[in-house]
Design a binder for these strands. Structure first.
Lengths: 142, 142
DNA sequence: CACTTAATTAGGAACCATTCCTAATAATAT
DNA sequence: ATATTATTAGGAATGGTTCCTAATTAAGTG
């Protein structure tokens, strides 16, 4: 997990401006256990900074994605964001929408194997499972 | 790989009507090596059946997804469909858009491990890599 | 500190894949 | 052949995301 200071410093080093909007968004992403959508990020940030626009949230997320400081995943046509950028599995509850992270060492190996077999230069990976979480699954098993 | 006759029979058994639109869409998905979008499917089907509507394509795809006869994946906010429903890795070229399938036995194991760790009941999985294919990667390596 | 300038932002319009709606059509059972 | 009811065509509506532009402001300079 990166620290806010490191991220700010590296952005500044690359010539990006450090704005309160950017700091607020990065801070929220670093602290939350959720995998929030752009809209949720916007809603949360607005409580403290009511002037922040949704388009700024999207722009900031684009920047952070490009710098590999956040991952983007897709849940039912909506993008969700995660500052946990190590390779891991995202597991989504199809009932309550919760998303858990699962660390799994073998993902790296699989990626290497896939690169070899396919001859692709691999730049991004996404491992996603979905189903019902322990709380919800009882409702669907009688 | 399923045969069209099996699919038609199983749909009929479950009380679904067999329409030319459904046959055409299933046939195309079974034959193509591509991972077409709904719009591409629509375009292709229309060459032979000009009356088929895009909403019918979407509805048929929903049905096929529900029956686990096709998989859906997401590429840059657009759904792509694949009649290859065994567990496999999809690898997407970020330059030319090509998608290759890679078989990888260990995916099953990973899924079992993830289910155990997370206590989720897992119903769907998606393993996606992206980067540049062998044709395109030279352009991005100087 | 005041000034400059160019990146960033707010706000809203535009976009576009997908879903929704409804009257017309056609697959199937009788 | 007829009746029933699932399915379809076509287009409108939806909603997440992107785009556009004038206003703002971070950061460099003297």
């Amino acid at each position: 997990m990166q620290q806010i200071e490191q991220i700010v410093a590296s952005l500044r080093d690359e010539g990006f401006r450090i704005t309160p909007q950017r700091i607020a968004i990065v801070n929220y992403l670093l602290k939350t256990e959720d995998h929030p959508s752009a809209e949720l990020i916007h809603k949360v940030i607005r409580k403290r900074y009511p002037m922040v626009s949704l388009s700024t949230v999207y722009k900031t997320l684009d920047l952070l994605k490009e710098k590999k400081l956040v991952n983007e995943m897709d849940v039912e046509g909506e993008a969700r964001f995660d500052a946990h950028t190590d390779e891991h599995i995202n597991i989504v509850c199809m009932n309550c929408g919760k998303i858990d992270d699962i660390d799994e060492d073998s993902l790296k190996e699989i990626q290497v194997k896939a690169a070899r077999k396919s001859k692709y230069l691999i730049l991004k990976s996404s491992f996603e499972l979905s189903g019902y979480c322990s709380n919800c699954k009882s409702k669907f098993q009688g």
